[in-house]
Design a protein around this nucleic acid. Structure first.
Length: 432
RNA sequence: GUCCCCAUCGUCUAGUGGUCUAGGAUACCGCCCUUUCACGGCGGCGACACGGGUUCGAAUCCCGUUGGGGACGCCA
């Protein structure tokens, strides 16, 4: 079983979505199930409704999963496991206050050395522990391992972390809730996860999680693949400040889910084809071939892919919830737009009044001519008549004419527009 | 600061010692099409971070430098 484990603490990030897509693809390739695990261990930061939003987004992208679980519902198991480690002396109660730790951390920074837990509470006698337990709040720390922890990452290769870098870290908070690493490690164990695909920012958590399971006596090896992170234009990690990092924002901008998914799969990869769907990618995607270097997000390339995927859409009127007589016009706008939003903006403009001064006189002449006569079947005949009866020609004919049609000076060929708009052309021009 | 990861056109990448005067895509520029713009067709610009090795031969292997990124929470 594979899993996608988002925390419900903010908008879905494209990096997260990429992780979800890859988990889905690989689960399908391996014929394994996909579990969605909502990591809601931090009560303070959980945002009401974000879990539903995440599931909706997975749905929009066509990511099918077999089950959804909430990490908080396993708290009792996490607590039991912590108790077990405590009894086996693989973990210990730590009475250091947050202030004390903060001071030590500050000191380490000043001395330009990495902060590590002092080990102060590790060797308290059982009697001392009992005494302190009644007086002070405490956390549970797991003892750091005796030997380095090694694992083989499917993307990064062999990774090793020393006991010093793993450190004796907190597994249970003072309020008895588990920390991320502890809950995650145990849940991966109890749901029998075979492969964890996640972002590179978790790379140094992995040895800690392996250490936890080893301490619990779980021998089965879980495979890992850590994806390089996505950088913004400036080469920094994409954050909430970057609009494009939000899946919701991209969707609002009129990017198709198919195109976004396509782009996220393509990023850091190379295939024979560049334009494809998630389902098609299952055929040729290879996790081990992802570039190990972080990649910059390029919205221009996304636009290109969006255009490609938009070509396939035949029911734009339905998508925009407008009368199907406008389908042909929408299709013309589609050819010159790179997002749905762009199409819609061009379409909406057709129904607005023209305010442009430059050709207002020519527009009036043409408007009168068009409204007073029957429309020709053929555009060329229509054009000839306008030319003959108004005396307008060249730029002074075509620019105002296009403005009458679509309220823009530039755009698709008038011939095509005429054909598409003929049934309702007079209506539009009347209100222009 | 410490640990870990990474390094080919602006961007995403192909490339696993000779087939590389480095291929593709995108972006950009030009021409054609179009009485305009876009689409489409054709073409162009553009990269092996640097310095040492190894080798007959290095984008490719090794070392170093530089640069970038990630991690160092009772966040996930």
């Amino acid at each position: 079983m594979l899993r996608f484990a988002p925390s419900p603490t903010g908008d879905m990030h494209i990096g997260n979505l990429r992780v979800a897509i890859f988990n889905y693809i690989v689960a399908r390739q391996r014929g394994e199930k996909l579990l969605i695990r909502i990591e809601d261990t931090d009560k303070e930061r959980n945002i009401e409704g974000k879990d539903k939003e995440i599931l909706e987004i997975l749905d929009i992208f066509g990511i099918k999963y077999d089950n959804v679980v909430y990490q908080s519902s396993n708290f009792h198991i996490h607590q039991e496991m912590a108790k077990k480690l405590l009894e086996e002396k693989k973990a210990f109660a730590c009475f250091c206050s947050e202030d004390e730790i903060a001071i030590e951390r500050e000191k380490a920074k000043l001395e330009k050395r990495p902060y590590r837990y002092s080990g102060k509470c590790e060797y308290l006698t059982p009697k001392e522990v009992e005494k302190l337990k009644n007086k002070k709040p405490f956390v549970i720390r797991i003892k750091k391992p005796e030997n380095p922890i090694k694992f083989n990452d499917l993307i990064k290769g062999e990774i090793e972390l020393t006991p010093f870098d793993i450190d004796s870290f907190v597994i249970l908070r003072a309020d008895l809730t588990p920390t991320y690493n502890f809950a995650c490690s145990i849940d991966d164990m109890i749901y029998d996860i075979s492969l964890v695909i996640r972002g590179e920012d978790h790379l140094s958590n992995t040895p800690k999680q392996i250490h936890i399971r080893k301490a619990l006596g779980y021998d089965k090896e879980i495979e890992y693949a850590h994806l390089p992170i996505i950088l913004n234009e400036d080469g920094k990690k994409m954050s909430k400040r970057d609009n494009a990092s939000s899946v919701k924002w991209l969707l609002q901008q009129g990017f198709l889910p198919e195109a976004i998914a396509n782009y996220l799969i393509l990023l850091g990869n190379s295939f024979e084809r560049e334009v494809f769907t998630i389902e098609e990618a299952i055929e040729f995607f290879d996790l081990s071939k992802i570039s190990r270097a972080p990649a910059k997000f390029d919205i221009e390339k996304l636009k290109f892919l969006n255009k490609e995927h938009m070509k396939k859409i035949k029911d734009l009127a339905k998508r925009f919830n407008v009368n199907s007589i406008y389908e042909d016009l929408l299709q013309i706008f589609k050819d010159e737009s790179s997002t749905l939003k762009e199409i819609k903006e061009k379409f909406d403009k057709v129904f607005e009044k023209s305010t442009d001064e430059e050709f207002s006189r020519e527009r009036e002449i043409l408007k009168k001519e068009i409204l007073e006569n029957e429309l020709e079947e053929n555009y060329d005949d229509f054009k000839k008549r306008l030319q003959a009866n108004t005396g307008l020609k060249g730029k002074k004919l075509f620019m105002p004419l296009r403005e009458l049609l679509i309220n823009q000076k530039h755009g698709a060929e008038i011939k095509d527009l005429y054909k598409a708009m003929k049934p309702y052309l007079k209506e539009i021009i009347k209100n222009r």
